[in-house]
């Protein structure tokens, strides 16, 4: 294969095309240099970021943009920490003004301990944001009916959770994730719950377009090494999906010929 064929397996969201199928979050790292090193090692081209008040008492604190350049990475502002549709819409309007980007990640969460997506509020916020000209990638429950409704409303990507945010449990509901993937005409990303490289590979083998990982990299003992592992896991899962796995069978099929045996 030539280089073009090998790198031709891209995915596109809202007219933007990416080679890397690993999207990474920028939260929870011990410091900004580690954030930058791990993100570089992950090969990600898109990163999620949060919008927060500037700390007026420590204005010289280093800023994310000085380490993770928005010129180099596609910033995907999120609404983490928003528990109502209004908060989510206000936050993303500020993000659009700060960065000038329309492509955003909407998440409206229910209460702890699960922080499970609040779908009623998510649908309201998605409607308001789309009306306001945003291109909405939406974090959602592993519910094929809700996912379809979000797509029909005009969301540009559907992002069902694999498991609760930061839980590291991997894809808990593969049947429904697969159903969402099969029914969607927009990209589907498994977002949240990935614990290790295997989980990312498994999500990709289900056929999703990309995987979003934050905690599993940021909180690993060696975030840069885990970023490399996630990159390899996502690539392995994608290759396996494209290659087409053998069917599962309840019996053996010998791998060596059964003819020409010595007697």
């Amino acid at each position: 294969m030539d280089g073009m064929t090998q790198t031709g397996d891209t995915w596109t969201v809202a007219g933007r095309t990416f080679s890397s199928r690993l999207v990474v979050g920028t939260g929870k790292y011990k410091d900004l240099p580690t954030t930058a090193a791990a993100i570089e090692a992950s090969g990600a081209e898109m990163v999620t970021v949060a919008v927060r008040r500037v700390n007026l008492s420590d204005r010289n604190a280093p800023m994310l943009q000085d380490y993770v350049s928005p010129q180099h990475y596609t910033y995907l502002p999120n609404t983490a920490g928003c528990f109502t549709a209004d908060e989510a819409v206000r936050t993303l309007r500020l993000a659009r003004e700060a960065g000038g980007w329309n492509l955003v990640k909407l998440e409206v969460l229910g209460p702890p301990p699960l922080l499970y997506p609040d779908m009623a509020a998510t649908l309201l916020a998605a409607e308001a944001l789309i009306k306001d000209g945003f291109e909405v990638m939406v974090y959602c429950s592993d519910d094929p009916v809700a996912a379809k409704r979000l797509e029909d409303m005009g969301c540009v990507a559907i992002m069902p959770l694999g498991a609760p945010i930061g839980s590291g449990l991997g894809v808990q509901n593969p049947l429904m994730i697969q159903s969402i993937i099969e029914n969607a005409k927009v990209p589907v990303l498994v977002d949240a719950g990935v614990g290790t490289a295997w989980d990312a590979a498994f999500a990709m083998e289900l056929g999703c377009d990309a995987v979003l990982v934050n905690s599993a990299i940021a909180l690993a003992d060696d975030p840069v090494l885990m970023a490399r592992a996630m990159k390899a896991g996502v690539e392995a899962g994608r290759f396996a999906f494209r290659a087409g796995r053998i069917p599962r069978k309840g019996f053996a099929s010998a791998s060596s010929p059964m003819t020409g045996l010595i007697r």
Binding site: G25, T26, G27, K28, Y29, L32, T35, T48, V49, A50, V51, R52, R53, V54, L56, M63, L64, Q65, Y75, P77, N78, A80, L94, A95, A98, G99, I165, G166, A192, L212, N214, S215
Partner: peptide
């Protein structure tokens, strides 16, 4: 007034 910027987030 609310003055915001981007920080690390998932």
């Amino acid at each position: 007034l609310e003055i915001v910027h981007f920080i690390g987030g998932g």
